[in-house]
């Protein structure tokens, strides 16, 4: 099975943790190890860890907390609130656009 190509975008100041670049094209495996020995489809929780390991340049604690994104970071899946898409359990598809926006900066 070929890798999934995704568009990932950071906003609200999060881009500063990712080489100060807002838009990234990434490819991730469609099936990934899950829990003890099993395998499963790549989901957003996997993507968050993958981004931390492969793209994030500094201060991981501002992006990831307790196995998912830090509270206060909004996530959109193809321009829809991830809360409508199963949050971290959303299974990634070829061509998905995932946006992470921090709400934690001043106004």
């Amino acid at each position: 099975m070929s890798h999934l190509r995704l568009k990932v975008e950071f906003g609200g100041g999060l881009e500063l943790l990712f080489s100060n670049q807002r838009k990234h094209l990434v490819t991730v495996p469609p099936v990934v190890p899950q829990g003890n020995e099993g395998e499963g489809p790549a989901d957003i929780n996997f993507l968050v860890h993958w981004l931390k390991d492969n793209l994030l340049k500094e201060r991981p604690e501002l992006f990831i907390e307790g196995g998912t994104v830090r509270p206060g970071i909004l996530v959109l899946v193809n321009d829809t609130d991830w809360e409508l898409e199963g949050e971290g359990d959303y299974e990634l598809k070829e061509g998905d656009e995932i946006v992470f926006i921090s709400t934690l900066h001043g106004g």
């Binding site: 909004l74 609130d81 946006v99 926006i101 106004g107």
Partner: peptide, 8 residues
Amino acid sequence: KEIVMYAY
């Protein structure tokens, strides 16, 4: 959350 979504 809604302010940020509105801006987005």
